[in-house]
Amino acid sequence: MTFDAACGKQWMIAMNKTVQEKKDVLTELDQAVGDGDHGLNMARGFQEVVNKIDANEYEDLGSFFSEVGMTLISTVGGASGPLYGTAFIKLAAQLKGRKQADLPVLAAAFSAALEGIKARGRAEAGDKTMVDVWEPIVTHLLKRGELLQVEELTRLAQEKLEETKNLHAKKGRAAYLGKRSIGHLDPGAASSVYLFTAFADVLKGEIDNEQS
């Protein structure tokens, strides 16, 4: 399986489709624990990403992901802009000069992206943030390498999202709610599930193509 800028475009198009469909779900989750703008922000940001990448050709994965990251930083208000933006810019730095990447290379790039998110947000696993989905996914990608079964990714992301329900928020607006944040899913963890589900779908398409 190899992943190139065309795969990256498919990934962003799939992610945008999901966030447009799930905009109200994200907004509802965010209204419960935050400021209620996550659905709108993600919908605006990924629409802008798709508009931008659609018209352009990319030499390598680095320039592709850099454009995605900068677009998210400039169009998404709130913490999700700089956090997702940082993740994509870290992916770009890791994949600079590569026209394509295999699963172990992608796993290492995602690992750098996760470190970027954690540093930027000063968050650790267990703080009830997107890190609670990202960290187990990255660990899984690193562990499985070429042996990855894409269905495992989607299932794991969903499980980890459900686990955020019982966590006490330590970061972001939800932290102001303290213990009252328990019982609610984290909106950033939810949008991260969409991101990894869209990623898994692209991988599955590529693997099916190679086998046929």
């Binding site: 703008d37 922000n41 930083i73 400039s74 169009t75 208000g77 709130g78 802009g81 933006g85």
Partner: peptide, 11 residues
């Protein structure tokens, strides 16, 4: 603000 709305923007 961000783009005339509530929010913050790095640029």
């Amino acid at each position: 603000g961000a783009d005339g709305d509530i929010g913050t923007n790095a640029f």
